[in-house]
Amino acid sequence: MTRRGVAGLVLLAAVVLLAFAGPLVSPWRWDETDFTAFRQGPSARHWLGTTQGGRDVFALVLRGAQKSLLIGLLVAVLSTALAAVVGTVAGYAGGPVDRALMRGADLLLVPPPLLVVAVLAPARGWPVLVPLLAALMWMPAARMVRAATLAAREREHVLAARFAGVGVPRLIVRHVLPQAASLLVADASLTAGVAITAEGGLSYLGLGVRPPDVSLGTVIADGQGAAATWPFGAAAGLLVLIVLAVNLLGDGLRDVLDPLRDAR
Results as ranks from 00 to 15, higher is better:
residue 2 T to E: 05
residue 3 R to H: 14
residue 3 R to C: 12
residue 8 G to F: 01
residue 9 L to M: 12
residue 15 V to E: 01
residue 17 L to T: 15
residue 18 L to V: 11
residue 19 A to T: 00
residue 20 F to A: 05
residue 38 F to E: 09
residue 40 Q to P: 02
residue 42 P to F: 11
residue 44 A to M: 15
residue 47 W to A: 05
residue 54 G to M: 11
residue 55 R to T: 13
residue 62 L to P: 03
residue 65 A to H: 03
residue 65 A to C: 10
residue 65 A to E: 02
residue 67 K to N: 13
residue 68 S to D: 11
residue 72 G to T: 08
residue 72 G to R: 01
residue 74 L to R: 04
residue 74 L to Y: 05
residue 77 V to N: 08
residue 77 V to G: 06
residue 81 A to D: 08
residue 81 A to W: 06
residue 82 L to G: 09
residue 94 G to H: 07
residue 96 P to S: 13
residue 98 D to T: 11
residue 101 L to P: 09
residue 103 R to H: 11
residue 108 L to E: 10
residue 112 P to G: 13
residue 115 L to D: 15
residue 117 V to M: 12
residue 118 A to M: 14
residue 118 A to F: 10
residue 121 A to M: 12
residue 121 A to Q: 10
residue 122 P to Q: 13
residue 127 P to E: 13
residue 128 V to R: 03
residue 129 L to C: 06
residue 130 V to W: 00
residue 131 P to H: 12
residue 133 L to S: 04
residue 133 L to V: 13
residue 134 A to K: 01
residue 135 A to W: 06
residue 138 W to F: 11
residue 142 A to H: 05
residue 143 R to Y: 06
residue 145 V to T: 06
residue 145 V to F: 03
residue 146 R to I: 09
residue 147 A to G: 09
residue 148 A to Q: 14
residue 149 T to S: 04
residue 152 A to T: 06
residue 154 E to G: 15
residue 159 L to V: 15
residue 162 R to W: 10
residue 162 R to H: 10
residue 164 A to K: 12
residue 170 R to Y: 06
residue 173 V to P: 03
residue 178 P to F: 02
residue 181 A to H: 01
residue 183 L to G: 00
residue 184 L to K: 00
residue 192 A to N: 00
residue 194 V to I: 14
residue 199 E to Y: 05
residue 200 G to L: 05
residue 202 L to P: 02
residue 203 S to V: 09
residue 204 Y to H: 07
residue 215 S to R: 01
residue 217 G to H: 04
residue 219 V to T: 08
residue 222 D to M: 04
residue 226 A to Q: 14
residue 234 A to N: 02
residue 237 G to P: 04
residue 240 V to H: 06
residue 249 L to I: 12
residue 255 D to R: 13
residue 255 D to M: 06
residue 257 L to D: 02
residue 261 R to W: 03
residue 262 D to R: 14
